[in-house]
Design a protein around this nucleic acid. Structure first.
Lengths: 214, 214
DNA sequence: CGATTGACCAAATTGTTATTTTGGTCAGTC
DNA sequence: GACTGACCAAAATAACAATTTGGTCAATCG
């Protein structure tokens, strides 16, 4: 449990002037983090060994532990990065002058393009399904909560502005995520995998406009 | 695989005039089937042993095999019964003179009351989640397909009549089922378990009316 | 005589022990 | 002092023994 690396992950010191990072001086931390991201996305949490990460990062195993106290912390960093990336995509797509529904569709549109970004989530879902790795499960739930929280804030805002009907924001965000997953999940033999445009079109109908004729 | 019981499940012969079933003459088949239904709902597929069923049914183990060739066939009968019951509830609730949306809500209303009828499905879902019993998984998928097929027929009909927007019936039915499960699934710590009325109210919004203001 | 039963058996499951793999450390190298 | 990889305890896996379970059928019963 305890180790000399209690504060390892918060290593801020990057001495040797930050600007002259130009050539050489391989950034160990980046190597490790990227190798880990690739490995987790390819082999899942269990399937990723620290030796594996070290080899992929072309780094001695001990080096990993100068940045991350243990495997779980390394995994957390990767998952946090996923959340950060998603939020970033959303943030730079959102246009406050547009209606909620348009923003929703635009963000969806962009997120759907990051198939590789999904690779991690897909692999982890499969891992949870097949062997139920607790760490993978918890990681995914953290991402879900983050996404739901993010959507919920915007739903509440839109509801307050009268752009959409009044509705419980959290539950609505939850339903949106579920619909998104139902439409995109390929591990489902109940319906064919849908193309990006179909996903968008159907999401609009089921979520925004409703089935009722008007 | 093969056995003397190839046609066991299709035992139709119930000699000794069918009417005088009044007293005595314990109906072995019924005993077995009901005991199995109770056992599967309580202990799941794996947790149910043939000895257990025999004891519950107060019947020798061999007797079970005069009606069902094996455990899987017995399980199938139970699952088929569940589908039949659900369809029956729907059928006797449906009123052709009412709009699609009203019928949908009415059926939902009635189905939500059969908590005990859900017990089997709930137990099997849990079993699939926890230990992934393939038979349980397949059984649930059969039920899902039946429900989706049933809903899809009515969706298509309603769409043809112009009662709802045009939409792919199968996919729409699939989404409806997913929404229902998302709203009712209690194994979900992402949101509180909803009461019957809340489920109904939200289902109407998310599925029929949509979030858009009109 | 056909319906019913429970001891019986092969196969699958579970419990147990031996072997290997893996997360994490740290003395030594560069 | 950043970095490494042989090293170790603990966890995972494989190999094997003991138990349980699905399914059978000769014997029994009504």
């Amino acid at each position: 449990m305890v180790s000399r690396n209690d504060n390892a992950s918060r290593t801020k010191k990057r001495r040797s002037n930050a600007i002259a990072q130009e050539r050489k001086a391989p950034d160990r931390r980046k190597q490790v983090t990227e190798a880990a991201a690739r490995s987790f996305a390819t082999f899942g949490y269990k399937g990723t060994t620290m030796d594996q990460v070290a080899k992929l990062a072309k780094v001695g195993k001990g080096t990993i532990y100068t940045f991350y106290a243990n495997k779980e912390e390394l995994f957390n960093e990767i998952m946090t990065g996923l959340i950060r990336d998603l939020r970033e995509v959303a943030e730079e797509t959102l246009d406050p002058s547009l209606p909620f529904a348009d923003n929703l569709m635009n963000v969806l549109h962009r997120v759907l393009d990051y198939r590789d970004r999904h690779a991690l989530a897909v692999k982890l879902s499969q891992e949870v399904r097949d062997i139920g790795t607790p760490e993978a499960k918890e990681g995914l739930e953290t991402v879900e909560r983050a996404i739901i929280g993010y959507i919920a804030r915007h739903v509440k805002e839109a509801a307050d502005k009268g752009e959409i009907r009044p509705c419980p924001p959290e539950l609505t965000a939850y339903m949106m995520l579920k619909m998104y997953l139902a439409l995109t999940a390929e591990g489902n033999h109940l319906h064919e995998p849908l193309g990006r445009d179909e996903v968008l079109r159907h999401f609009r109908v089921y979520c925004i406009e409703g089935l009722a004729v008007r």
